[in-house]
Amino acid sequence: MDFMKLLKSLEELLYEVVSWLIFYPLTIWRSLVNPLYMMRYADEELADKPQDQYDDMLSPPLFLLLTLLLAQSISHAIPSLYDDSTLPPILSSTANLLIARGVIFSVLPLVMAVTLVRRKNIRLTRETLRPPFYGQCYVAALFVLVAGIGLDLMLIPHQVGLTTGAILFAAAVTWYGQAEVRWFKRDLHITTAASIGLFVTRFLVALIVILVVALALGLTLKSWK
C-alpha cells in the first residue's frame, strides 16, 4: 500500500513537472502582453478552492521561482561573468543560490503589494497582503528576468555587451513601470501623474531594500566561509 502511494505521488509529480513545459511559456506570454489581466487573475484564483487554483497557469510564487532559476542559468551561461569558486560554500549549490535570489527579488513585489494595501487603508495582515503580492509576482518575474540579463550583459568585461544590456534593462524598466502605473491608477483610482510618482518612489524604495538585503546576506555568508 505504501509503495502504491509513493508510486502515485511520483506520477503526480512527473505530470506536474512535465506540464510546466506548456504552462510556463503560456504564463510568460500572458504576463508580457496583458499584465493587468494577470494581476486580476491572481486575485480571483485565490478565492477558489485550493485544488482549483491556477489550473490553467502556474501559480505566481512558482512562476517567480522558475523564472529566477531560468535567469540564474542564463547568467551562468554568459562568458567571463561568474566564477563559482568565488561563491561562499552555502551558495555553491544551485538550490541555495536560487533560494537567496528568491528572497532578494521577492522584495520588489512585496513593496508594491504593501503599498496597495496601505493606500487602500486596509489592515495589513498575511491574508490581505497575499492577493496583491501574488499578482505582483507575475510582473516582477518578467522584470527580474529581462533586467537581470541586461545587467549581466553590461558586466561582461571590455564592454562587449554594454549596449545590448543597456537596451534590455531600459526596456524591462519601461515595461514594468507602465504595468505598475496602470495598476496603481486602476486599483487606487488616482491620476496618471500620481501613479507615476507612486511607482517611482516605491521602485526606489524596493531597490534600496534589495541592496540592503543583498549586502546583509553577503556579509552573513562571508562570515560562514
Rank of each mutant, 00 (worst) to 15 (best):
L142R: 08
G218T: 09
T128L: 01
I78R: 14
D55W: 06
Y37G: 05
Y176R: 14
R30Y: 09
V107F: 05
W175V: 01
D52T: 07
G148V: 12
E180D: 03
K49C: 00
A100K: 05
P35T: 06
P157T: 07
P109F: 11
D2F: 11
V213R: 06
S75I: 03
L124Y: 08
V200I: 15
D55S: 12
V173C: 08
D187F: 08
W29A: 13
R123C: 00
F203P: 00
V103I: 15
V114S: 05
A100S: 13
A47W: 11
R182L: 14
R202K: 15
R40F: 04
R101A: 03
Y24D: 02
V111G: 04
D152M: 08
R186P: 00
A171R: 09
I104D: 01
I104C: 02
M57H: 12
M57T: 11
V209L: 14
L58E: 03
S195N: 04
G161S: 05
S75F: 06
R186H: 14
S80L: 08
M112G: 01
A216G: 13
I156A: 07
L110G: 01
F3T: 12
A166E: 10
F105Q: 08
N34T: 13
L98V: 07
V173G: 06
W29I: 15
W175L: 12
A77Q: 06
L58N: 02
W175D: 02
V144K: 01
R30N: 08
V181T: 11
L81A: 04
A172C: 10
K8P: 00
L110M: 14
K222F: 09
V205H: 10
T27E: 05
G177H: 09
K120F: 04
L66D: 03
L215R: 15
D48Q: 15
A140M: 07
L13V: 06
L64I: 05
L7I: 10
